[in-house]
Amino acid sequence: MKTVVLPRENLEPFLGRIARGHDLIVPKKTGNDVVFDYYQEGCQIALEYRRTLLPPKKFFLPPEEVLFRYKKGQGFTEPEPEVGRRVFFGLHPCDIHALKRLDYVFLEGYVDTYYRRRRERTLIIGLSCLPDDKCFCHSMGTDLVSDGFDLFFTDLGEVYLVEVGSTSGNDLVLTHRDLVSEVVDEAILKEYKTFISTRSDLFVQTLDTSGLSKILTLEWESPFWEKVAQDCLACGRCSMSCPTCYCFSIYDQVNLDSISGERSRSWTSCLYKDYALVAGGHNFRPSRGARLRQRLMHKHKDFFEQQGVSACVGCGRCQANCPAGIDFCQVLTSLRGDISESAVG
C-alpha cells in the first residue's frame, strides 16, 4: 500500500482545502461530547476523540428519510438526491469495519439505492485511535483496518502516517502534494511499530469470541436472558448508537388533501415491543428477554452465520451508552461460563 507522511501542522490546511471542494464531515466537539458533523470554518475538530454517540451510519442511513412522495394517479417521485462529493474524515478502524458490514446488507442482493448513492459520493479518511476501558475491537479483529478507506491517518505525534487505499485517495494526496512528503524514513517506521504495540497494550475490555456463535446457540433457552432483561429499559439507545444496527421501519404519511403523501423509513430497534408483532396480533418475541436475546444473537451469531464475520465491531458504544449500565461483554462472557451469571447486572 502506498504510504506518505503528513506533518501534523499540515492537517488543518489539508482539511481546510478539502472543505473547499467537498462537504467535509469531521468529529466535532460539542460540549463534553464529540459528534460527527459537517465541517465549518473554525470549528473544533476532535483529533483524539474516543467515540462519538452516533456512529457514521447516520450519514449513509439517516435516522429518518423520505423514500418517495406520491400523488394519486401520478405515480411516485423520489426526493432529489444529494449531490457533490463528501469527504468523511476521522473514522476509527472499528467504524470503517462497521461500514463494510453495512455494505453487505445494503449493497448485496437488492441494492439499496439510497444507501448506495450516499456511499458512492463519500470518501473515507480513517484516523487512528487509542482505546478506553469500553473498547474491545482487538477482540473482534477490527482494531486495524486494511481496506474500506480512501486514506487512513495514523497519529505518530509530529506526523501522520497516511495509507492510501484507493485511487480517489491518491488523487487527494496528489492534489495536495505540497502538504505531504513521500519519504517514509526509518524513524517514522519505528514510531509506527511503537504505536501499534503500545496501543495494543492499552486494551482493558476483552471478549473471548472463540466459538461464541455456537455457545449462543446452545444457550438459547438460558433463563439468563430474562434475568438480564429485568435491567433492560428497552430504550433502544444501544441500537441507535450501534454502528451496525440497521433495522428500520417503513411507514406512510398522507397529506391533509388525502390524495398525496410520502413514504418514509426510520430507525427502529428489535428491543421495542411491537418489533415482531404481526397484524393478526401474534407477537413472535413477546418478552423483553426474547428481544434482548435477539439483539445479541443477531450481532454475534446470526450475522456471523450469514456473512462470516460478527456484526459487532467492538466499538463499545452499546455499553458506554446504556443507561442501565448493562455490560454486554460481561453478559456474553458469563454465558460462556467464564464468570458467574450473578456477577452481571
Partner: peptide, 17 residues
C-alpha cells in the same frame, strides 16, 4: 402508533444521557 420511548429521539439528537 409510535412504539418507541423518548430515548430514541433523544439518542438521535445525540444528547448526553
Amino acid at each position: 402508533k409510535l412504539p418507541y420511548p423518548v430515548c430514541l429521539e433523544c439518542t438521535i439528537r445525540e444528547n448526553s444521557c
